[in-house]
């Protein structure tokens, strides 16, 4: 019973950690630049969840005020993450633009092949 309570209380944290660690793994282990950007996206979305989940109050409603409700979830993380998502897609676009330019300059988007091409000089 105690174990079950612990699992329910921390399941969201563990999933967040799993997402974060897999993002980290993709960024470190994979040489393909688009895959790396997807991994960065995973890492980023795990941080969104990390911010949002402590703000949730069991039994609360979304923070839109109305006389019928009295318990609201915390609005502050929502504001921070809302702007972070839009900024995230803008920076993702910047990264993709860099990938396109790298592909035009080197003819590849694999890190290993770019390094091999550099060493041949």
């Amino acid at each position: 019973m105690d174990l079950l309570q612990t699992i329910v209380a921390h399941y969201n944290h563990w999933i967040i950690i799993f997402l974060m660690v897999s993002g980290l793994y993709i960024v470190v282990a994979r040489g393909n630049m688009i895959k790396k950007l997807v991994g960065l996206g995973l890492f980023q979305t795990s941080v969104y969840l990390l911010y949002l989940s402590p703000g949730k109050i069991l039994g609360g409603t979304p923070p839109i005020l109305s006389p019928q409700f009295s318990v609201y979830s915390n609005p502050l993380p929502h504001v921070l993450i809302l702007t972070a998502i839009v900024v995230g897609v803008a920076t993702l676009a910047l990264g993709l633009a860099l990938v396109v330019r790298i592909n035009e300059a080197f003819g590849t988007i694999e890190e290993d092949e770019i390094f091999a091409g550099e060493e041949d000089e």
């Binding site: 969104y48 969840l49 109050i57 979830s73 993450i81 998502i85």
Partner: peptide, 19 residues
């Protein structure tokens, strides 16, 4: 589910659409 309706709307249109 986490009560962040504004954020969910943004994530659905930005994450699944534009990116």
């Amino acid at each position: 589910v986490l009560d962040a309706v504004d954020v969910a709307m943004t994530e659905a249109s930005v994450g699944a659409g534009i990116s």
